[in-house]
Computed example of a mutant assay.
Amino acid sequence: MDAVRIIAASRRGLAEASTVHEVIVEAWQAQALAEAVGSHLAIFGPYEVRSRARGLGDAGGRFSGGLLRPAPRTGGLRAAQLTEVRDVRGALTGLRGLLREVCEALVNVVCSADEEGMYWTCVEAMDTADESSDRITGILEKLEVRDRNLA
């Protein structure tokens, strides 16, 4: 399945998340997707962005999600369905937007967290999402430079 479709499904999943556990699971899903997109682009992406894409894959894989696994209603790990990234720029832009939305949802969870473990799980998830977002910005900048040089 194409990355853009999976990103859209992840955005819907996050929007429908109604419990703390579901928000954390969606954060984990988004990070797994960042890892999968980064790894895919490191192999099949434009040559100029492959090393940065490896960094995105590494960053995406750092969040353990408090060792949470996807809830049964999510149908498993969405990132496992990734087979292609047809629109590299569109996928990266969408993924960066998803990671921002994840951070916003996690801020709401942090503000209401009544246990220290949940607080630190959310902080870890926000840090990882922020790092992944920064790496995506770097890849997009590299693509822009490449496109200018080709023109």
Rank of each mutant, 00 (worst) to 15 (best):
D87Y: 08
R146P: 00
V85I: 07
R96H: 05
A17C: 09
G138H: 11
L99R: 07
A71P: 09
T121G: 01
C122R: 05
V37Y: 04
L56I: 15
W28P: 01
S112N: 09
R100W: 10
R89G: 02
L82C: 08
V4F: 09
E141D: 14
A42S: 15
R12W: 11
E144W: 12
A8S: 15
F63H: 12
L99F: 01
T19L: 09
L67V: 02
A129W: 02
V145W: 02
W28M: 01
C103M: 15
L68Y: 06
E101W: 09
N149D: 14
D2H: 01
A53F: 10
E131R: 06
N108A: 15
A71I: 09
V107K: 10
A34K: 02
E35S: 13
V107C: 08
T128P: 01
A17W: 04
T128W: 03
R5C: 04
Q29F: 05
S132K: 06
L143W: 11
G38Q: 02
T74Q: 10
T93L: 10
A9Y: 01
V123E: 12
L98W: 03
P46A: 10
E144P: 00
T137M: 04
V109P: 07
A53P: 08
L140H: 10
R78F: 11
Q81I: 03
R78S: 08
E144H: 14
E26K: 12
G138D: 13
R73H: 07
R69F: 10
A151R: 07
E101G: 14
S133V: 02
R86F: 05
G66D: 10
R78E: 07
G94T: 01
G97Y: 06
G57M: 09
L41I: 11
G97T: 11
R11S: 13
A34E: 07
T83M: 11
R146D: 04
N149H: 10
G45A: 10
D130K: 01
A32K: 13
M1D: 06
H21I: 05
Q31R: 06
V107T: 13
R135E: 14
D2C: 01
A129N: 05
L14S: 03
A80V: 00
V85P: 06
N108Y: 11
M126F: 11
T128H: 01
G90K: 08
